[in-house]
Design a binder for these strands. Structure first.
Lengths: 254, 254
DNA sequence: CGGCGGCTTGACCTCTCTCAAGAATAGTGG
DNA sequence: CCACTATTCTTGAGAGAGGTCAAGCCGCCG
């Protein structure tokens, strides 16, 4: 564990280098920035990463295991996704469950209210996460204004991402929501091969359904719809050939 | 204008004092905080407010007028609601319009992406706003880590607020969404009389419909539903008698 | 008092949910 | 390598919530 603690940011750095230009789908600007700033993730320097690594834990979570944390549980950590995908979910009193976000590598999660987690978090595929004690992180950020500013930009970015999800849920039918989801997946090199245009859907129908606010059956039907329109082609249930730009055009989202 | 610039934060302070305990509906905690921290708004000290007032403009916007800004427009300011209600909206290519947030006094708005506003903003009732040049604000925040930290907390709070809206849209039927909206309105003393339990709905059916992701007709029908259940009583189209706690219970949201 | 805009109501129709069964896939042990 | 089983995906049919269109109503303002 101690070893991991010191190398994880380096690992992340390497991963970022491999990703190269393909991070662009998640690359969106928050409040206006200097022109040369990149705003999708935190975009920390190596030194900053090293400083942060001094007080984080590395944890692994399996997809089949128990939730990372549960809504209402005492919250004293914030999590960062290094590898894998985590889904944030909220259960209301009637028992209905709603996904509030899908966290990809580079995202933070662990919002709390009154010292308790506001949502539950579950790994939808196997993950490695970094865990920060919230108190230490806060003190550190106050002592490093420029790093804190990057966190503020990241938070603003997340507001916009959540608003985007709201727009998707409120203004698009299921087929279009699915189209957006698939295009988003194509922004992640781990699952999309730009050469062959083949996407490996990383999560189950049920998890997709949660994410886009529908049922697993309707997800399947929406896949049929997109296939009939010639926007995708199903090779196996999880391997799709994707026409990215047509899909994006169809979704009628920017 | 210069006079206003120097007194606005004082005015706000007075308003906060008048509000007293009734801010509780919007009072929610972001990431875990020191126990004595209040986390609904920015919660700045008088000195901090004075410092900020040095580089803000005061502007008035009428409900019938043009938008405060339009999606895609060049963004170099951030706005703060002093009085009134502003609705953030996003229009997708198909022309469908979706509300992304309702901004009440104390809220900031003006998210941008690639230097352009991500959403449009319209005053749904007459407003007074404070407008900050984004560059100056950023520089100021970096030079004042503790104030920046309050902005970070506010941003995190807004993420949760947006997630909450997402939950409402994804997991609740229209009657319940309306119930949540009405209860939220009751948290604002300007429109709700705690003694008589009378709420004056501040915005039109159409704007409500946008906000909760439905049509104006369905809003009316949902009002009927709630009235039949005895949760509200309609005196005029805009004056309702509200049973707050029953409504909240009905909504099945926390 | 007359007109305009927002609210209300009705009728119809579409999309999506639910329930239920059948197919494909992956995992397991022989 | 082949059954057998658990899981996930797919398809079908029926029901219901809510969208849309169209008309009527009410309060507000000139």
């Amino acid at each position: 564990m101690p070893v991991s603690m010191h190398i994880w940011f380096d690992m992340k750095l390497t991963a970022a280098q491999l990703d190269g230009s393909n991070m662009s789908v998640r690359a969106q600007h928050p409040w206006p920035l200097e022109d040369d700033e990149e705003a999708s993730g935190l975009d920390l320097t190596l030194d900053e990463k090293t400083e942060l690594s001094h007080f984080c834990d590395v944890i692994s979570v399996g997809a089949k295991g128990p939730p990372i944390f549960t809504q209402g549980q005492h919250a004293d950590h914030v999590f960062y996704v290094n590898e894998g995908i985590v889904q944030g979910r909220h259960t209301i009193r009637s028992g209905v469950r709603q996904s509030v976000a899908l966290y990809w590598p580079g995202d933070f999660f662990g919002l709390a209210r009154d010292g308790m987690f506001f949502n539950s978090a579950e790994a939808v595929i196997d993950c490695t996460l970094y865990r920060y004690p919230i108190r230490k992180l806060e003190k550190f950020l106050i002592s490093r204004p420029r790093i804190q500013h990057k966190f503020l930009m990241k938070a603003v970015h997340d507001i916009r991402k959540t608003q985007r999800q709201l727009i998707i849920m409120g203004a698009l039918d299921v087929a279009r929501r699915l189209a957006v989801f698939l295009v988003d997946c194509c922004g992640h090199r781990e699952y999309f091969d730009t050469g062959t245009q083949h996407l490996t859907i990383p999560i189950s129908r049920h998890d997709i359904a949660d994410h886009i606010g529908t049922s697993a059956e309707t997800v399947t039907r929406a896949i049929n719809t997109l296939e009939k329109k010639g926007l995708i082609r199903r090779e196996t249930p999880w391997k799709l050939e994707i026409k990215t730009s047509e899909l994006l055009a169809f979704s009628s989202l920017d």
